[in-house]
Amino acid sequence: MNLYPRSAVTVLVAALAVGCGAPPAAPPPRPAPSAPAAAGGHGGAPPPSAAKAPFTLVASGEVLASYPEVLDTAQDDAPDFAHHAGAPTGYDYRPMLKGIKPVIAEADLALCHLGTPLGPLTGPFTSSGAAQAPPQVATALKDAGFDSCATASGHTLDRGDAGVRTTLEALDTVGMRHTGSARDAAEGSRPALLRARGGAEVAHLSYALGDRRAAARGGKPWAVNLVDEQRIVADARAARRAGADLVVVSVEWGTEYGSVPDATQLALARALTAAQTDGRPDLDLLLGTGTRAPQAYERVNGVWVVYGLGDQITGAMKKWQGNWGTVARFRFAPPERPGERWQVTDAEYVPQLITHGRPLRSINLNRTKLWVKERAAIGKTVLSRGAAASGLKAGR
């Protein structure tokens, strides 16, 4: 669905490139993508006769790109030749993600969670009141290698219908799939369908928890998907009927800065992972954000749950743990017989943090000898519910 005339889209593409400096370098050749994965950065379709192959999926935490120090860093990193009414409009978020980009780019599918609406090129951009971030965030996420971004959050409707449109148009413009908010009912009824290299069809669904969001969306239930156990299970089953081999659910929930999952998280995780159709789980992976700080990974009813990924991009938070995060990495193998579930053969977490002060940078803590205490604290939290016994390991 294209809400801009062709000329406006051309201007937006050019402006996103200008705002981020030179356009991203062309990726290495990959197999031609199928129709569902045409917007992704990793998807590729095998010949029709080929068996579906194992693939690796990664997911990172919430992108909160409108904090003052984040905006300042993005302007510092951008070429200062894009102006509007005398003010610089150039923002480059790619250097912030450079430290974690290899983890994202090496995966077969990569999922992000956008926690701030993206606005027009001229702003205004702010994290106070109604949050709004520059659309160049989309360029950086695509450049890092992300294929699909969850967009259901507590800030989705901060800028109303216009904010939903500009956010999704920016993601569309750079070729990023999205799920969790929509411009109309038809768009809201479709999950993001992705095809991994090797042929697996993966459905990405996204929801946010909270009554305030329900009141804010008024008579447009498609504007942002809200957490409802029956709705999530029904959507997962519909995605499976539509051809999805795996269903991955992103959910914003939990208590901010909570190092352990709260009662609501635990109950919802148990309920969702217990849902089955013909003896097969309806969900294959549950990814949590919204807690700011990282939380435990756990295998529940045979399904991996990440209670809190932490944040991927953020400014200086009230507590230092708010600048910590993890990237989840799961290797899926196809079933031996048709109709059976795909199996996780390797499960890893990559600890990371966003530095304080300018310039803000994402740091892969397993590729540095610094931040020893932070790396240990993240590992202790991630493994606090017995994930090591289920096979979870620290990855690089």
Rank of each mutant, 00 (worst) to 15 (best):
R231G: 05
W320I: 15
A53H: 14
E374T: 14
D147L: 11
W222M: 08
R159A: 02
L209E: 05
S384A: 11
R217N: 08
A274Y: 07
G40K: 00
P48C: 13
A269G: 09
G219N: 09
G339C: 08
G391C: 10
D282A: 09
Y91V: 02
A105W: 05
V372Y: 09
Y307G: 00
G315K: 00
T326K: 03
V327Y: 00
A271E: 04
R292Y: 10
F332Y: 01
R30W: 14
T255H: 11
S34G: 15
E340Q: 15
R195P: 04
V174S: 08
L392G: 05
A162K: 10
A131E: 04
E201W: 12
L114Y: 01
P54L: 08
T345W: 13
P36W: 08
A22T: 13
A53Y: 12
S259K: 14
P135M: 05
G339Q: 06
P36M: 08
T156M: 03
L171P: 02
P95C: 03
V306F: 04
A296G: 07
A293M: 06
R231W: 09
L71R: 01
E229A: 15
T291W: 03
P48H: 11
N301P: 06
L309K: 03
D262W: 04
L365G: 08
S390V: 10
P36Q: 10
R331L: 12
V382H: 00
G302K: 06
A37T: 08
K101Y: 00
E201T: 15
L272C: 07
R212L: 15
Q321G: 04
A170E: 01
T345Q: 13
V327R: 01
T273C: 13
S181P: 00
R341P: 09
H178R: 10
G357F: 03
L109Y: 07
V372K: 14
S189F: 11
A25R: 14
P47C: 14
R195I: 12
P191N: 09
Q295S: 07
D172W: 12
V372M: 10
V248P: 00
A107S: 14
E106A: 15
V344A: 11
A328K: 01
G199L: 10
Q75L: 05
A78M: 01
A316P: 09
L171W: 03
V344L: 13
V63G: 02
D143F: 12
A37K: 07
A244I: 06
V13L: 11
R299A: 06
A316H: 08
Y297C: 13
K318E: 12
N225F: 09
D161S: 11
P88W: 08
A394C: 12
K142Y: 13
T126D: 06
A59M: 07
P338V: 13
R270C: 12
L157H: 00
V137N: 03
S250G: 09
S7D: 15
G288N: 05
V382E: 01
L266G: 09
D282E: 14
R329S: 05
P31M: 13
G279D: 13
